[in-house]
Design a binder for these strands. Structure first.
Lengths: 202, 202
DNA sequence: GTCTATATCAGGATAGAC
DNA sequence: GTCTATCCTGATATAGAC
């Protein structure tokens, strides 16, 4: 297979293993085994573990931006798009209970390691923050759009952390419902341009 | 110095280093150096790293319970006690911005390592959860005391995670104010038995 | 571009002197 | 109870054949 393909496979496997086992606890041998590659060949593609981390973060940022752009293409309203963001917690609940939020846990691990890439990792949060702020601005809340965006992000992170610690799926369902209700109260259902669409329970 | 003192010093240093650098990234050599002890002697006190982790978690749980008991002794109202919990975020903001929440980050790291002690670490959260639920019950919210307790814990964790990721103190101040306002709206200032006390801004 | 073999080093853990 | 010396394993990283 071509070098580009192999490189992509390595980054893909590293992305998953960094999430499931943590950055420090994942060895090159683990990644090489997951890709079906020898350790020696590994260094043809990445010289250091830090370089690999950079590629993983870039991949996550790109896929996040692509996902947000795809949501933007959807015909639904800003409120529905924000709800779609919140619903990630429910859709990914199994992995979140086992490993936490991929972005939050990586940022915290890199903060403790005082790693040079910690701001790059935080840029993934920044992508969500900017996108959410744009949605709130579209709802006429331009003045405090960033604060509202951070509030949604903050609650998402809190939900993920507690669900992981207590291994409790009920926390996710209850707090997602509460966050959805907060959203409806904050921006109002009146803001929805498609009032005939079926209402999700909150 | 006596064996008990040395052991205590080791656990104290490990507690700090596990928090600041993470469990996996902290080596016996790091701890021994911090205590001023040789690596060899280290094993007289703790046979394995897991055993040391157990002692650190036990220490954190004990100090948490002692702190909560001390707050209970205070003459203030349940609402004031819950606010005291929330204010930890402000008081410890410098360390939180640098290293996150000690409990949340440990639970997440142990979850990724699939470590046997992960439930013991979560028990520290359990102590806060039970204490907060007791305060809400004292405010006449016995029916949903646990949900309210988890909500406060959840928001504390979310605030800590974002403050760490963005290295932003303003997030803490803004969201602590929002959480304090939520508390006042939820249980009502009328619940306060000391209505003549000066009002904290929210 | 992929392999095997190997250098180098750090961390966990042990043995035994004092 | 503390030390020095040492073993063992696993991880990063390199060299060179194919």
């Amino acid at each position: 297979m071509g070098a580009t393909d192999t490189r992509e496979h390595i980054v893909e496997a590293a992305d998953r293993l960094f999430y499931e086992n943590g950055y420090a606890a994942t060895s090159f041998a683990d990644i090489a085994a997951a890709v079906g590659l020898s350790r020696g060949n590994f260094y043809y593609h990445f010289k250091t573990k830090d370089e690999l981390l950079g590629a993983v973060i870039a991949r996550r940022l790109a896929s996040t931006e692509a996902m947000l752009a795809a949501w933007e293409e959807g015909a639904s309203s800003p409120v529905a798009r924000i709800r779609r963001f919140i619903d990630i917690l429910v859709m990914n609940r199994a992995k979140i209970i086992a490993y936490g939020c991929p972005v939050g846990t990586l940022c915290e691990e890199l903060a403790k390691l005082d790693h040079a890439a910690q701001d790059d990792a935080a840029a993934i949060f920044g992508a969500y923050r900017g996108w959410l702020a744009g949605e709130f601005a579209a709802l006429g809340r331009a003045a405090d759009a960033d604060s509202l965006a951070l509030h949604v992000l903050m609650r998402s992170q809190g939900i993920a952390t507690l669900a992981t610690a207590f291994h409790d799926e009920a926390i996710i369902h209850r707090e997602v419902a509460a966050l959805t209700a907060w959203l409806a109260a904050e921006v109002g259902e009146a803001s929805r341009p498609t009032p005939t669409a079926p209402q999700r329970p909150s």
